[in-house]
């Protein structure tokens, strides 16, 4: 198993990715220390619609966090797809299955690899969150936004697990080419739905959309958010395991190798 995981690590250029992430975290830390924000720095301030004075530097750091979360969720999926492409391109499976490596172990290695990636990115996201929050002032809107970003960490990464619980079987059972077609079709449908919304939908919904109301809602619904944080990883892990069992069942019975 260790060897299979190392192969996947090499296929995503793991060393380069690790060094890049370490550099990003260090730069984030460095910039946060140089631009400490509200509690320490009274320049770069702006007034909100409600008359609250907030620091733009704080807002910039807090608002960058959802971008990181989204990027990390996507990176988990992209990395997995890259390992599959690497395996198919280099005919890894034909080679592996001629050795005493069974199909179950190969499937398990993919699930474990995605699990490790998810945990690693979740940890990096939490570190960035801690660094960002360390120098925040006591402005309620910004603090609540920062808390919301932290609260989204575990549900966000549960989403990454769920996405891969579908992605892994599709790639392994149908092959990379068909998987790409399905993924493209899915995102095209999403794209068309958005276009349809703009053409025929009620756009006043977007007009009413207010991020500060979401932050306020999160602040007053701590119990519900905590419940989501508890339930979402448990459910996604359970579904991830069910997905593994289903994939193993069909993959062991599958004839031929998609290479």
């Amino acid at each position: 198993m260790g060897g299979l995981l190392y192969k996947d690590f090499v296929s995503i250029k793991g060393k380069r990715v690790s060094i890049t992430i370490i550099i990003i975290v260090l730069l984030f830390l460095l910039f946060r220390v140089i631009f400490p924000g509200n509690g320490y720095n009274e320049v770069f301030t702006a007034m909100t619609e409600t008359g609250e004075i907030i620091n733009i530097v704080d807002t910039f750091f807090v608002m960058s966090l959802p971008v990181f979360l989204y990027t990390f969720i996507m990176l988990v999926s992209l990395s997995f797809n890259k390992t599959i492409s690497y395996d198919e391109k280099n005919k890894i499976r034909s080679y592996l299955f001629s050795l005493p490596v069974d199909k179950k172990k190969y499937v398990a290695s993919k699930y474990v690899f995605v699990g490790i990636l998810t945990y690693t990115y979740l940890s990096v996201y939490m570190i960035l969150n801690v660094i960002s929050a360390a120098y925040l002032g006591e402005i309620e809107t910004v603090t609540n936004s920062s808390n919301l970003c932290m609260a989204l960490a575990i549900p966000g990464m549960s989403l990454a697990l769920l996405m891969n619980a579908v992605d892994i079987p599709v790639n392994l059972l149908l092959g990379r080419a068909k998987a790409v077609t399905i993924q493209t079709s899915f995102w095209l449908i999403v794209g068309f739905a958005v276009v349809a919304l703009f053409l025929f939908g009620d756009l006043t919904v977007l007009d009413r959309w207010d991020i500060s109301k979401l932050v306020e809602w999160a602040d007053t619904h701590a119990f519900e958010l905590t419940l989501v944080s508890i339930v979402s990883p448990v459910i996604s892990l359970l579904l991830f395991y069910v997905s593994y069992r289903i994939t193993t069942f069909f993959y062991e019975r599958k004839e031929g190798i998609d290479e």
Binding site: I154, S229, I230
Partner: peptide
């Protein structure tokens, strides 16, 4: 602390402990 939150606190601590264990790790 909300009483409902207090009652589920051990579960929340366990889940956040398991998933956010990077510092302890």
């Amino acid at each position: 602390i909300d009483k409902r939150l207090l009652n589920i606190f051990p579960l929340a601590a366990i889940v956040s402990g398991v998933f956010g264990s990077f510092a302890a790790f």
